[in-house]
């Protein structure tokens, strides 16, 4: 007889206890702070580097560099937090409430206001100008160096090293800006 009603005590106690279930969604669910619910972005801080898009295991992120937008297909996201961890400027965070149910799948696109876009465009232009100036300066520096070497080579008695330097200088002067920039970087 001792092997009977082993669960009897727990069963009777449960009859007079509060249910252990939550009547969701009528009763709201209490999330923990760390719960991985959905990804959210501070779009103004995003630099459109594309690290999150490349690292996402499901491919649910898309970064449009030209239009400064970041989009996510929340129905493909598996809440792995890889994007949050790998973002270099930490503009992505994980909110703790789950994505709401919907009747149709859609992609969430986050973009900037026109004012913010104007600022970003201006910054991009400034960056481009700075880069162009830097390249020109490096190119000028190299041309000056090449002239100096040319002068030095003429003075020296036509050795193999002088003709090689001339030949090298010749190719450098002949090729375009881009390779000149690289050469300038290597020589500097």
């Amino acid at each position: 007889m001792s092997g009977l009603f082993k669960l009897g005590k727990m069963t009777l106690q449960s009859l007079f206890s509060k249910p252990a279930t939550v009547a969701y969604p009528a009763e709201p669910r209490e999330y923990y702070p760390m719960t991985r619910g959905q990804v959210s972005i501070d779009i103004a801080a995003c630099i459109q580097c594309g690290t999150c898009e490349r690292g996402c295991p499901t491919g649910c992120l898309a970064v449009d560099k030209a239009n400064y937008t970041w989009s996510i297909n929340r129905y493909q996201c598996v809440q792995c937090q890889h994007c949050v961890r790998s973002c270099p400027v930490h503009c992505l965070t994980m909110r703790h409430n789950y994505t709401e149910s919907a009747t149709e799948k859609h992609v969430d696109v986050y973009g900037l206001t026109p004012a913010q876009r104007a600022v970003k465009d201006a910054e991009a232009r400034a960056r481009a100008e700075k880069q162009a100036k830097a390249r020109e300066a490096a190119l000028a520096k190299k041309r000056a160096k090449a002239q100096a070497e040319k002068g030095g080579a003429e003075k020296a008695a036509g050795t193999g090293a002088a003709s090689a330097a001339k030949g090298g200088a010749g190719t450098t002067a002949g090729s375009g800006d881009a390779s000149g920039g690289d050469e300038g970087a290597r020589n500097a």
Binding site: T11, L12, S14, L15, P19, A23
Partner: peptide, 10 residues
């Protein structure tokens, strides 16, 4: 309902 309550459900 009673069976559910004995199982800690609603």
């Amino acid at each position: 309902i009673l069976t559910a309550r004995m199982q800690r459900r609603r």
